[in-house]
Nucleic acid binder design. Structure first.
Length: 469
RNA sequence: GGCUAGGUGGCAGAAUGGUCAUGCAGCGGCCUGCAAAGCCGUCUAUGCCGGUUCGAUUCCGACCCUAGCCUCCA
């Protein structure tokens, strides 16, 4: 039985889908004005795994991940770069998709863009005005009236009075309530705009998600996910709009992932302490980043740093080493590892425990391998790869993975100074010759030399193989 | 100030009203010419103070500390 922690209720609850066998899921995606960073990657990996697990459980998942392609930041960035908004967003959507693919984050079933859903957005705003939940302010913007929705604050656990008392809420005289937020923003000259009953303008941030989610998943759906920082105000507002417009509970389960930290601080655009995925990937196998993310529970924080990445790499390498030289069987009888893995994933997607189960399975695999039990090893290998696939891991061939150099885990050797494979093969052959003549001083010298370049030698019954450390 | 989530071994990170995963690192052994890989064994932990209990790391309360949100942010 799958249980999921629901932000709305503050506890883990048994998951009950609205329509038997089907799950509608909406995850907040990217605002496309820059390359994605590790924090974004974490969030998308987390929900990618949620989706994969739901599918592994037999659900037919309708996965929607939006793209915010119009807002102030985009307009400002385009202006700074002297570029058209369309060109800027197209560029970054492409960049985002490349990064997602590298990290094994699968495309969503629907990837709606705000600018393609203007009619739906306008319609929802009209409904809100008609129902008395929204009004046209003095500035010409359309605003949502928070006091018109009595459950406002339920998701983030806040009371309107507390929020109003918050020292950082800016008082805007044009609003009836300082907490009212924009649904439709009137365009200033030169800004991209769309026609509406309230004049030329563009949608506010929150309304696009409401309108697109309802358009693609219906008035009420199963799971809505996003980063912790979206809980308030974004999801609170989204919830208020959608409930008021549709008179439905909107979302069954709200899920929020924790942050990536750098030196115990949130990695964020505003703090400037972020690493983009594309600057990090050249010296980090994408799968290592994925393993690093999954080594922690999705709701907790993770610290981005060399030590932790190295550990993730070592753990992953251990799994690949176990799989090396074993042909996975076509079928197998799921064992203790699968049972433990399943239980872990059913417990609010506890990927650290699931990975622990995989490590134990790798040990069993190593044992039967060493004992020369080929059929048992093949069965375990198949089981391990199946479990790995659910997490989007272990998709590579072991030999290929092990031959891939990772600067992080390798010697302090720059890419330029790294020896060529042909040169390594030559040295390995020379060492083998020395070993045959029992000239161990020379053979050890060669091994040390290679070790200095991050090359690890392994002597086996069929000869010597090498891999990058 | 309000709200939320946390504080577990050298590090990372699970779980649990009584026996505290898993990986890395360390130590001992097997294997090896020696190593590596692998296997076996093994050391170190539950922020602080009270309470409930036969027994709490786990439940309750206070305190301290950390992070996050309350403004754009995955």
């Amino acid at each position: 039985m799958l249980t999921i922690y629901n932000t709305l209720t503050g506890r883990k609850e048994p998951f009950r889908e609205l329509v038997a066998g089907r799950v509608g899921m909406y995850v907040c995606g990217m605002t496309v004005y820059d390359h994605i960073h590790v924090g974004h990657a974490r969030s998308q990996i987390a929900f990618d795994v949620v989706r994969r697990w739901l599918q592994a459980c037999g659900y037919q998942v309708n996965y929607v991940r939006n793209i915010t392609d119009i807002d102030d930041k985009i307009i400002n960035r385009a202006r700074e770069l002297g570029e058209m908004v369309e060109a800027l967003t197209a560029r970054h959507i492409e960049s985002m998709n490349e990064d997602f693919a590298a990290l094994g984050i699968r495309p969503a079933d629907h990837e709606p863009r705000a600018t393609r859903f203007i009619p739906e957005i306008v319609a929802m705003i009209s409904t809100l005005i008609a129902k008395g939940n929204a009004y046209v302010g003095e500035s010409g913007d359309v605003l949502y009236s928070v006091s018109s929705f009595k459950a406002y604050g339920q998701l983030s656990g806040r009371k309107l009075a507390d929020l109003r008392a918050g020292s950082r809420v800016e008082v805007d005289e044009k609003k009836r309530d300082p907490l009212d937020f924009v649904l439709w923003k009137r365009a200033k000259p030169g800004e991209p705009s769309w026609d509406s009953p309230w004049g030329l303008g563009r949608p506010g941030w929150h309304i696009e998600c409401s309108a697109m989610a309802v358009a693609l998943l219906g008035d009420s759906f199963d799971i809505h996910g996003g980063g912790m920082d979206l809980k308030f105000p974004h999801h609170e507002n989204e919830l208020a709009q959608s409930c008021a417009a549709c008179d439905t509970p909107f979302v069954q389960v709200w899920m929020h992932n924790g942050f990536v930290r750098v030196n115990d601080e949130k990695m964020s655009k505003s703090l400037g302490n972020f690493f983009t995925v594309r600057e990090v990937l050249p010296r980090l196998r994408p799968e290592v980043l994925r393993a690093f993310v999954l080594a922690s529970h999705y709701r907790g924080p993770i610290n981005y740093g060399e030590d932790n990445l190295r550990q993730a790499d070592a753990a992953l390498q251990r799994l690949y080493l176990a799989l090396r030289d074993v042909l996975p069987a076509a079928g197998y009888e799921p064992g203790e590892a699968t049972r433990r893995f399943t239980e872990a994933m059913n417990d609010d997607f506890s990927t650290p425990e699931a990975l622990a189960a995989m490590q134990s399975l790798a040990r069993e695999l190593n044992v039967v391998k060493a004992a020369g039990d080929g059929p048992a090893a093949s069965a375990y290998a198949a089981e391990l790869r199946t479990l790995g696939a659910i997490l989007g891991l272990l998709g590579e061939r072991p030999e290929v993975w092990l031959a891939t150099h990772s600067e992080l885990t390798g010697a302090a050797e720059s890419a330029a100074g790294r020896p060529e494979p042909a040169e390594i093969d030559r040295l390995v052959a020379a060492r083998t010759k020395s070993r045959r003549t029992r000239n161990f001083a020379e053979s050890d010298r060669i091994r040390d030399e290679l070790a200095g370049h991050g090359v690890v030698l392994e002597d086996g019954p069929t000869g010597t193989s090498w891999r990058w450390q």
